[in-house]
C-alpha cells in the first residue's frame, strides 16, 4: 500500500480513534516508513498547539441575556407578521372605499372612472397570474425542501 492510503489512518492514530486492527496495521507501516513517521511527528506538534488554542469566554451578562435576545426576536417576528397583515388589509379596505367613492361621485369624469376600473382589472389579472404561477411552480418544485 502506498503512503497516501495511510493518511486517513494517520489522523485516526493521532486522535486515538482507530480500532485495534487499524492501529496494528498503521503501526506496521509506520515502523517501515520514515516519511510517514516524520509526517506524524509534524502533525503531533500541530495538534498540540491547536489544542492549546482556546477561545475567550464571554461575560456572564451575554449568557444571561442570550435567551431574552432570542425570545424578543421571536416575539417581534410575530408582531411584524400581525402588523403587516393588518396594514395590507387596511390598505385594501381603504383603497376599495376610496375607489368606490370616486366611482359613485357624479362630479368625477367618466373617462377617469373607466381608467380607474381598467387599472383595477389590470392589477387583479396580474395578481392572479403571479399567484397561479407561484402555486404551480411550488407544487411541482422537487427541490423546495432543499435549503439554499
Amino acid at each position: 500500500m502506498a503512503c497516501d492510503e495511510y493518511n486517513d489512518l494517520m489522523m485516526g492514530y493521532l486522535d486515538e480513534e482507530l480500532t485495534a486492527e487499524q492501529k496494528r496495521r498503521f503501526e506496521e507501516h509506520l515502523a517501515a516508513c520514515k516519511q510517514c513517521a516524520a509526517q506524524l511527528q509534524e502533525f503531533r506538534q500541530l495538534k498540540a498547539i491547536t489544542d492549546q488554542v482556546t477561545l475567550v469566554e464571554p461575560e456572564d451578562r451575554l449568557w444571561q441575556q442570550y435567551w431574552d435576545g432570542i425570545y424578543n426576536r421571536i416575539e417581534r417576528g410575530v408582531g411584524w407578521i400581525i402588523f403587516s397583515v393588518a396594514a395590507i388589509l387596511l390598505t385594501i379596505y381603504g383603497g376599495f372605499k376610496a375607489i368606490e367613492a370616486l366611482i359613485k361621485d357624479p362630479a368625477v369624469e367618466t373617462t377617469l372612472k373607466i381608467a380607474l376600473l381598467a387599472l383595477l382589472v389590470g392589477l387583479a389579472i396580474l395578481f392572479v397570474s403571479v399567484l397561479r404561477e407561484r402555486i404551480f411552480f411550488w407544487s411541482k418544485d422537487r427541490y423546495k425542501n432543499v435549503r439554499r
Partner: peptide, 12 residues
C-alpha cells in the same frame, strides 16, 4: 478522517 488530514495538512 480524510477531511481532517487535508485540513491539518493545509494548516501546516
Amino acid at each position: 478522517m480524510s477531511r481532517l488530514y487535508y485540513a491539518r495538512k493545509r494548516l501546516k
